[in-house]
Design a protein around this nucleic acid. Structure first.
Lengths: 214, 214
DNA sequence: ACGAATTTCCCCCATATGCGGTATTGTCTC
DNA sequence: GAGACAATACCGCATATGGGGGAAATTCGT
């Protein structure tokens, strides 16, 4: 039995959700609220028992504290809560922010109720659900954030190999041993790496590497 | 009608896929191959027509050139190709790499054929499909890379201050000068930082810092 | 096949870094 | 007021690192 709580300010959507979810065999509708404040009041009141290990359907556009802002608050109190964001906005930035805040799934309110139930089951199973358009946005984001990194790479294969080992914290000596070359050679390579990257010490080189500037 | 090509070295899986996909109304099976090399040969041979605007199901673990390595090659020639990765490995790193390389969807081979067709339709529609477990991995990745700033911070304010300067590539001497303290003090702090972080050189400390582990 | 680029190796020398100690001062807590 | 800890500072020593050279072998591109 999956305990599903809901925070949603739109009466119509909320009613439909509660009605539909109540009919599902494996789902038990828990606390329902129309705002974050309201929700916190309810779960603190003695009459209501809130399962803090279940699933929370959370509207992103709430009056007062927004759903987005509420994610960290909710997770701090209930770290095992699985939050599924509900929203009408499928904008990339909001999605990314929600994901980074700790929500585990993201569903458009236009999604049929049946799919929402499916998402709940998936999340309960340790998975994560994304509407296809949202998934595509995320893919695009990932591609975007990684594609323009290939611009540079002034470095030769050997140099890159050695730089990686530097980043891993290996000493010249270790690198030399691992590559079966002389430490002097390693030093030479590193001098050249520094010249190519326009840096003059390990720290900056590592910084550039880890920032994808290599 | 969606044109779906397939590169997959496992005969059984390939046969099943082709048979099942052929039966679908909206799908036309295009070029099939068991390796990247084979695929390129086929699409270059005059007898075979390859729709470079369709969908390509691409196995990630191919002999010779791997599916992962092939993504950029394929996309360079056919920028409008939608690549769906097929794989048995649902490891986070591979997924991220595939996504970053330009694949638009990622499906486990364990996924039922019906779901694979669903994914093809979604991708054809401009969306993106991810198996739930993969989606969860991605969420976790996003969260990890942005949220966990609270976890650690074993470091005192002064230590953190100094670590930041280390990361910026400053020498002990520079740091000392900037903080109006003795270089010896800086050395002391750094010794303590290393102890706290369980590292024993700059490189590892910088790595931890830039990976958000501090 | 020739030159460019890459990879390999060595020298010297100054400084930086890592690790082992020890010690003083102030602050905070119990 | 004892104990813990942060911040300050110092010493010595071994190794690591950065910068300056030079030079041979190998691979690569055209």
């Amino acid at each position: 039995m999956i305990n599903v709580s809901i925070i949603e300010d739109d009466k119509v959507i909320l009613t439909n959700l509660v009605r539909y979810l109540s009919r599902q065999d494996d789902i038990k509708v828990g606390v329902i609220a129309d705002s974050i404040e309201n929700f916190f009041n309810k779960i603190k009141s003695p009459g209501i028992k809130f399962s803090n290990e279940g699933i929370l359907l959370l509207d992103i556009g709430l009056p007062g504290i927004s759903g987005l802002e509420a994610i960290p608050l909710l997770l701090r109190e209930n770290p095992n809560l699985n939050i599924i964001m509900l929203t009408t906005f499928e904008e990339e930035k909001i999605i990314l922010k929600a994901m980074c805040s700790g929500a585990v799934a993201y569903i458009s309110k236009r999604t049929p109720l049946k799919k929402i139930v499916e998402a709940i089951l998936i999340v309960n199973d340790g998975g994560s659900y994304m509407s296809p358009m949202i998934a595509r946005d995320i893919f695009n984001y990932m591609v975007k954030s990684n594609a323009p990194k290939k611009k540079s790479s002034f470095l030769t294969g050997r140099q890159l190999e050695i730089l990686k080992m530097i980043v891993e914290g290996k000493s010249y000596r270790n690198i030399a041993a691992e590559l079966f070359i002389s430490p002097e050679t390693v030093r030479s390579h590193i001098k050249n790496i520094y010249k190519s990257l326009h840096v003059n010490n390990k720290a900056e080189a590592i910084g550039k590497y880890l920032n994808g500037e290599v």
